[in-house]
Design a binder for these strands. Sequence first.
RNA 1: GCGUUUGUAGCUCAGCAGGAUAGAGCAACCGCCUCCUAAGCGGUAGGUCAUCGGUUCGAUUCCGAUCAAACGCACCA
Length: 564
Amino acid sequence: MDYKKLVTDALFKVLDGQITNEKIYQLLERPKSLDLGDYAFPAFPLAKILHKAPQIIATEIVAEIDQSHFQKIEAVGPYVNFFLDKSFFSADILRQVIEKEADFGNQNLGNGGNVPIDMSSPNIAKPISMGHLRSTVIGNSIAKMLQKVNYNPIKINHLGDWGTQFGKLIEAYKLWGSEEEVKADPINKLLEYYVRFHQEDIDHPELDEEARAWFKKLEDGDEEAIRLWQWFRAESLKSFMKIYDKLGIEFDSFNGEAFYNDKMDEVVEMLEKQHLLKESQGAQIVDLEEYNLNPALIKKTDGATLYITRDLAAAIYRKRTYDFVQSLYVVGNEQTNHFKQLKAVLKQMGKEWADDIHHIPFGLITQGGKKLSTRAGRVILLEEVLDDAVKLAEQQIAAKNPNLANKEEVANQVGVGAVIFHDLKNERMNNFDFDLEEVVRFEGETGPYVQYSHARATSILRKAGNPKFDITDTYQLSDNDSWEVVTKIASFPDVVKRAVQEYEPSVIAKYALHLAKAFNKYYAHTKILVEDEEILSRLALVKSVSIVLNESLRLLGVQAPKEM
RNA sequence: GCGUUUGUAGCUCAGCAGGAUAGAGCAACCGCCUCCUAAGCGGUAGGUCAUCGGUUCGAUUCCGAUCAAACGCACCA
């Protein structure tokens, strides 16, 4: 039932002729405090029309309105406050959640349309850092949210497996590396070579020449170059998979940059055919002045292709392969211009679907206020952070719940959950300075807080013998603490919708915190397992909380242990 | 210099499409486990919502300017 509509209709009967039904619906708001009711109608806009003070209008509305479906309707200053029938409303919501379970909040916004999501995209031969975590977990969460509203997300890991850095890497490996070393500790060794290259080429610029030559060989299909490249790629991927497993994230495609090597000529030809390509300072560009953008560099002076050439090929490939309704790129804020250019070039080419491409930017993670940089060796390794978090979770369990059955599994869920949740709880665009203590915190507004609340709920249900609920059950709850929980639960579908529309996992994370808080308050003040006539209602509430918290965490890509 | 993003309590951040006394969490101080997990609950203290203008009955929220920070500004991705 749409309760806002109920309120609107009641008001409309009184205000017919003064204001439209739609306008009333639009004007209705949720008061900040439940003391002020569940819906409020501000009378200000009517003051002008009726030439009366809004306070008086509010009082008059209350005098005339039909109160039959409400617990109470009262005028407070210039507002008309509506209090829903708590018992009736609670029963209605709880029945819905218990019936639909994890499907509660599902809606059809997408009609099953395909949505490729470009996400994670680490560079081969470099470790996954905290910076990649953002793209990975934001993309993953958006995929789950899209699925919930009936889109078909396709998670694409656009690996950085091509480019001049491989020339540098091969050169560095030939100079200082060995097969045994790499086999023992692939990523770290490869990174070491890479960092050393950048240190030494300051004094030995001839290294750059060599590196360029190696990359040229690679492009020309030189056997040794290809062999090394494939080896580096395979080793890197292996170690990436370890981390993705820990995070519980899977991909539908690993087509990275190299995959588009043979697909760029076609793009260049298309551009030529449409006379979009111009020469400028020896390079091939597409002029984007009419979009107020810098020209897009399609080919370098030496004829080599660039980032945007590859992304054009990828965009076109994805349209052909998936016929997407939207195409998302979860890539850092600093690349905003690149995506503006990408869309502009596609538009120039007459591809109207360029409008379906959305860059989902996010803020930077810094350390000590400085940008992380692989080259400078300033990296925070994601794997280490995850390991630290899990260790800390183990300590927590040892201290708080030493008899827990599957300690190791739970420690993983909680530790990793803390890291993921920390990354998702704030608005995407916010920058944040990395602080390990902050990331692995288990108290306050954290992932473990939500997990703990969920575990409490499931523990109660377990102690109650996991009761079965029936559609014919009637629930009666009317106290304020349970009411706060119920109203939060009821808003879940809207929360999901908003999160999807804004591509913003933090909306879900914030919601989960609020619901957990409301439940913990209820839990602290109300004894649930008491044999009286309301026990089934209380258990239904607990059950609903466990369902919605579990589902919220799932949408964030965070596990919800039943006990912790 | 131009563009983008950000600026709310000591710190980290909420504040949904403008509305009723600006909210959390950390940190500080004080309470609550003979009772379903204290990873919890409650209380105290802490704010010229960067600054100045504009629109509006009403602006933390919308618009403009200024200041500050981060990022970007063709042959890296």
